[in-house]
Design a protein around this nucleic acid. Structure first.
Ligand SMILES: [Mn+2]
Ligand SMILES: [Mn+2]
Ligand SMILES: [Zn+2]
Ligand SMILES: [Zn+2]
Lengths: 143, 143
DNA sequence: GTTACTGTTGATAACTGTTATCATTATCTG
DNA sequence: CAGATAATGATAACAGTTATCAACAGTAAC
């Protein structure tokens, strides 16, 4: 199972960094991979609090940051809103269509666009490292 | 001159909205169009303060918002940093290459990418309204 | 299991950028 | 000029994020 492999990756990361595998980390990890994608710190915090009322907001935040550092999660910053996080393990790069009515995120990939982006960068003597493409509009359900 | 036309647009906008043409608005307007592009509220505030020490931060902020509403400026939100503003009058849509070393913004347009974005949206039964493409990397001068 | 070391937690304060509040001032219209 | 009211500037409030710190807990050595 991919989630078990992901847990191994986290455990290895903790070991090689001299970090500890706490009860809270396990809880946050499991919750993150079972909750909705593109979740906020607040969202995950509330999700966890239902079964773990003692959890601290800062702990959730810190461990989402840790998951990003270990390569298991990605930060998504849309506009000026709260930072969102999505599982990354075993998933390819993708971009997002974002519905301005319901807030839904649709994940998309387009190899042609990716290649043209690289050409565009090259034409400007620019070495691309990462990119962000967000298309805002109205989703099928909101038309 | 394009900046004079822009001033007319602002004056018309103020008139039709029942707003007033204050001394500060003139100062902020002139400063905005003569300062660097992609400037922050703080940047413009400091720029103006040199010759107009009495100017208020909130006034600069409010008037940048007003310029956006009148169609003369655009907001740019990059990552989690401060909002930036750029003059819009007489300029086409463009995207940005952003140097992660020096922070430089390179303005780019690519019609092919734009069209593929529309196709991508259509393929997802999504009506695109606006989009944001940011490519982060190393600029020529920072290689 | 006990101990010692030190990373982690949870509560909360501090911080940052943005926006609201409000008394005072300035603009505009008649 | 006078009256109505929009705008300003100082500052408070706000939201999201991050730092602080005393109490706690994971880990490894004994
Ligand atoms: Mn996604
Ligand atoms: Mn630009
Ligand atoms: Zn929708
Ligand atoms: Zn550079």
């Amino acid at each position: 199972m991919t989630i078990i492999k992901a847990k191994d990756i986290l455990r290895n990361y903790l070991r090689e960094k001299g970090l500890r595998n706490t009860r809270q980390r396990e809880v946050i990890f499991d919750a993150f991979f079972s909750a909705d994608k593109h979740i906020t710190v607040e969202g995950l915090f509330n999700f966890i609090k239902r079964k773990n009322p003692g959890i601290g907001y800062a702990t959730v935040h810190r461990n989402l940051t840790l998951l990003c550092q270990s390569g298991l999660a990605d930060e998504i910053k849309i506009g000026t809103n709260k930072t969102r996080y999505e599982p990354k393990f075993g998933r390819e790069h993708h971009d997002h269509l974002i519905c301005i009515k319901c807030g839904r995120f649709i994940e998309v990939t387009d190899g042609k666009i990716e290649r043209l982006q690289d050409k565009l960068a090259e034409a400007n003597e620019f070495i691309p490292v990462r990119h962000k493409l967000e298309i805002y509009g109205i989703c099928r359900d909101c038309k």
